[in-house]
Design a protein around this nucleic acid. Structure first.
Lengths: 204, 204
DNA sequence: AATTGTACAATTGTCGACAATATGATTATT
DNA sequence: AATAATCATATTGTCGACAATTGTACAATT
């Protein structure tokens, strides 16, 4: 019997996560087209699985899809759009905290602490890609707990925001802010948690 | 040279639109699973195209996807969620109007008027499915004009809201509200347009 | 009788091949 | 020489088939 508790991620999901990480870290130019064949060879899977992943990322707003012409990386949001995204994110995460905090378990605490340790380490090493991914994973945790349907909406907004994330200057601040969030949640202090999350979500 | 001006919709898009309409109109139960094979036969296409469509609808939040177990129709949002969705929608549509109205063309007026006529007719005939679809198409018009990336975020929110739309009681009000929006836009009156849209978007 | 184990059917996941379409280079025409 | 038409290549769209997985009915065991 398999020892892993975690569900085995589908091929599509793995490719999605990998590409999303690279795009958010700015490793793929906004101009050069993304080719299905190349990715298929690179991941060692069929073009069909890659297509599914690209389609999903298009739906998330990370990639822009043009029929018969493939996909390209979406351009970063304007300042006005960034402010809008930040506002939407705050609304969703405030809602999620309100809904979930009452049924928060010790296991949730444990999971969140684990992510916080990863984030802290990534900040110390100035590993931008890891920081972005873990940051995303932490916020995603409480949103996902609130509602799977809401999660997909939230992801689209947040990923779009983080595309412009590349120039993060203060690494320690990022770690500290999330530590404050985790701490507030551990105390089941809703208003403190909301305040801490609200501070962390801002347009760059 | 081809005579059609409109872009030919991909198979996936056609299936998406059809299924989304049916789901929003409540024609598919929330319990019965959606089978790829059935849909493939029904639309006369391969299972692969259906898969793409189901995947996209899952990403929109209309369907819930479980690996190796297919998809099912998402459950309607709670009242608290509905209020959240309404708030998010208002924010996005206000933003879109602000951004687009200055570059609104006569062609846009024409397109919107056409949709309004369709909506009006659908309201008179009490055709709930047509009403929902046209309502969606109208709002989508200005959001899409503002930003393709924003559009996908908006669509996820709005479709989720409209799933619970089934019990629309006052058909004429719907038509009148949209007429007011179109009128305000035709006059390029931003604040009136914003007010009219804001009134129209509410949690049921 | 309840529980476990096993074979079977139904369904989703993945693949390679071919068709349709777009892009770019080449040739023919004025 | 400039432009238009044509062909060649590359890329995406679609398909049918097979592999992997899940759920279920049924038999074997205690």
């Amino acid at each position: 019997m398999p020892s892993t508790r975690l569900p085995i991620l589908s091929m599509r999901q793995q490719i999605c996560d990998a590409l999303r990480g690279e795009i958010m870290a700015g490793e793929i130019s906004s101009n050069e087209p993304v080719r299905e064949q190349n990715l298929a060879k690179r991941f060692g899977v069929s073009r069909n699985s890659v297509r599914d992943a690209l389609l999903q990322l298009s739906q998330e707003g990370v990639l822009i899809y043009s029929p018969n012409c493939g996909v390209r990386v979406g351009s970063p949001p304007t300042q006005k759009e960034s402010r809008l995204y930040a506002k939407l994110r705050r609304e969703i995460e405030m809602h999620s905290l309100e809904v979930t905090l009452s049924s928060w378990t010790k296991e949730d605490d444990c999971n969140l602490n684990r992510l916080q340790r990863i984030l802290s380490a990534a900040c110390e090493q100035r590993d931008l890609k890891a920081i972005t991914e873990t940051d995303l994973a932490m916020h995603r945790y409480w949103v996902s707990k609130a509602s799977k349907e809401l999660e997909s909406v939230w992801l689209g907004i947040t990923v779009r925001m983080l595309i412009a994330y590349s120039q993060l200057n203060n690494f320690m601040q990022c770690s500290l802010e999330h530590a404050a969030i985790v701490e507030a949640i551990a105390c089941r202090d809703l208003s403190a948690a909301k305040k801490a999350v609200e501070l962390n979500i801002r347009s760059k």
